[in-house]
Each structure stands twice: as structure tokens, then as C-alpha cells.
Amino acid sequence: MDFVSEAIVLQARKHGETSAIMETFTREHGRHNALVRGGVGRRMRPILQPGNIVEVEWRGRLEEHLGYYTVELVDALAGTFMEDRLSLSALNSLASLLREMLPEKQPLPGLYDVTKIVLERLDDPDIWPALYVRWETMLLEGLGYGLDLSRCAATETTDNLTHVSPRSGRAVCAEAAEPYLDKLFRLPPFLRGQPIATPQDIADGLRLTGHFLETRVQWERNRTLPEARRVMVERLVADGLAV
């Protein structure tokens, strides 16, 4: 059996003397691992850096086997992040969430495409924080826990949606939210299509998605959110991009 797919490198760890096991997020086959012969050598090591876009050819006798990757570099994005601590923290957070949360070998092409867009824009701090929050909403959707921000959970109106219920993940309009403001999450306008995201909006968005990633996804596995995500949030705050 074999396949060819574009993929995002999530991690590569040494295996034996010269090989590496590379973990990828492939467009057609979801999260997938395989052995790369010579993966720790000078030629391959820069290619197997997290964040790079590659084309992989997987070969194995049976689908459930680890198998082998042949790897060709498509876009060396990783090198653009190494000198920027903020962008690197976003890459580490994104890769950690995908490694921990994605089921193996489940195709999620929509999430893959959005992930690639975020990676390609991590060099622009005016853009990527809002994209990253939207990416986490897509991750929740891909895992079966999508938020419903289309209409009010209490009144069914689609107007003046300002908050989100921490229980249902559904939007709440301002009138229905008024008695429960201390119990609801604020809904950042950019998640409803507004073009501008303030530092307050970014912080509110990260609190919103973080809550559901932790209580809906990680809780079932008896885990908290990855440390890399906390580091990213702290650096956003330190740089004034979140409050």
C-alpha cells in the first residue's frame, strides 16, 4: 500500500542511529506518522522542521503499519519563524494542539487548508492572532465540538449576538445575556465577520476557544491544554496583542 499527499510537519524525533519518526498532518490522510530513513542527517534535518510544508510518499505493507516516508520539501516555512519568538510560539502551540487532539488517519481537508493559511501568515502579527483564534474554532469543529455562533440560544435571533454560553457553545444576544454576564463568554465581533480585531477581542477569543478545547476535548483524556499554548498567550499579552 502507498499514498502521496501534501503534509505539514508537526514533529520529528530520532529513531535509532540515523532515522527519525516524523509526525505530520496530511491533507488526505489526517495526522499520520512514518519512519524517515536518514532523518537525522544534515540533508534531511532542515526539511523535517515543524511548520514546513512537504510532499510525502508513504509506503507500507498494511495500513496499520508505521511504514516509511519519502519526503520532498514544498515550502520551507519553519526558517521564517526561528528568529521571531512570537511567531515561533504560535507555531509551537498549533503543532502541539494538532499532535495531542487529532485522531490518527482521519482526513480533515478543510482544517488542513486553514492550518496552512495560518502558517503562511505567521510573519504578520497584525493578521495572525485573529486567524489563529478562527483556526481554533475550526479545530473544535473538526473534532465534533463546533461552536454555534449563528443565532441566539435563548431567542433564536441573529442580531446583536454578544456572548457565548460556556455550557452549550451557542451564541447569546445582548438582551438575553444581560442577567448572566458574569457567567458567559464575550463573543468577539471578528468571529461574526467584523474585519477588525482589538487586543481585547483576541484575548476574549482565546479564552472562549481555550475553554471548549479544554472542557470538551482534553477533559475526556484527563489532560489540560498544552504548555505551548500558554506560552503563546503570554507572549501575545507581553507584546500588547492581547490583554
Rank of each mutant, 00 (worst) to 15 (best):
residue 66 L to V: 05
residue 27 R to M: 07
residue 199 P to E: 12
residue 48 L to Y: 13
residue 243 V to T: 14
residue 8 I to P: 02
residue 195 P to I: 13
residue 197 A to K: 10
residue 241 L to E: 09
residue 32 H to K: 04
residue 198 T to Q: 09
residue 152 C to Y: 03
residue 194 Q to V: 05
residue 201 D to K: 08
residue 140 L to K: 06
residue 119 L to A: 08
residue 96 S to K: 02
residue 57 E to I: 13
residue 145 Y to N: 00
residue 13 R to I: 08
residue 174 A to L: 07
residue 135 W to L: 10
residue 233 V to H: 09
residue 30 G to L: 00
residue 84 D to A: 10
residue 214 E to H: 06
residue 84 D to C: 10
residue 64 E to T: 10
residue 159 D to C: 01
residue 168 S to F: 09
residue 115 T to K: 11
residue 200 Q to E: 15
residue 101 M to Q: 06
residue 206 L to H: 10
residue 236 L to D: 02
residue 146 G to E: 00
residue 115 T to V: 03
residue 50 P to Q: 12
residue 218 Q to C: 15
residue 128 W to Y: 14
residue 240 G to L: 09
residue 81 F to S: 01
residue 98 L to F: 03
residue 109 P to W: 02
residue 31 R to Y: 01
residue 5 S to E: 12
residue 52 N to S: 09
residue 146 G to A: 02
residue 135 W to C: 05
residue 159 D to I: 00
residue 4 V to E: 11
residue 55 E to R: 15
residue 90 A to I: 03
residue 139 L to T: 05
residue 86 L to V: 13
residue 174 A to T: 06
residue 234 E to V: 06
residue 160 N to F: 11
residue 149 L to N: 07
residue 27 R to K: 15
residue 60 G to T: 08
residue 219 W to A: 12
residue 62 L to Y: 06
residue 120 E to K: 15
residue 114 V to K: 13
residue 104 E to K: 02
residue 46 P to G: 10
residue 60 G to K: 02
residue 152 C to M: 04
residue 233 V to D: 08
residue 2 D to K: 12
residue 59 R to W: 05
residue 164 V to F: 07
residue 107 P to C: 00
residue 217 V to Q: 04
residue 238 A to M: 07
residue 227 E to A: 13
residue 21 I to F: 05
residue 31 R to K: 15
residue 177 A to P: 05
residue 173 C to Q: 01
residue 179 P to V: 10
residue 49 Q to N: 11
residue 157 T to G: 13
residue 152 C to L: 05
residue 8 I to L: 15
residue 156 E to M: 13
residue 43 R to D: 06
residue 33 N to P: 01
residue 139 L to F: 10
residue 88 L to Q: 09
residue 73 L to R: 02
residue 25 F to Q: 04
residue 37 R to E: 06
residue 77 L to C: 09
residue 97 L to D: 00
residue 70 T to H: 13
residue 167 R to E: 10
residue 30 G to H: 00
residue 93 S to T: 07
residue 118 V to A: 13
residue 197 A to W: 06
residue 175 E to V: 09
residue 112 Y to R: 00
residue 240 G to R: 11
residue 73 L to M: 11
residue 88 L to T: 03
residue 194 Q to L: 07
residue 232 M to R: 11
residue 232 M to D: 04
residue 111 L to D: 04
residue 210 G to N: 06
residue 111 L to K: 10
residue 240 G to V: 13
residue 205 G to H: 05
residue 140 L to A: 02
residue 33 N to W: 02
residue 62 L to G: 00
residue 84 D to P: 09
residue 100 E to I: 05
residue 88 L to W: 09
residue 162 T to L: 05
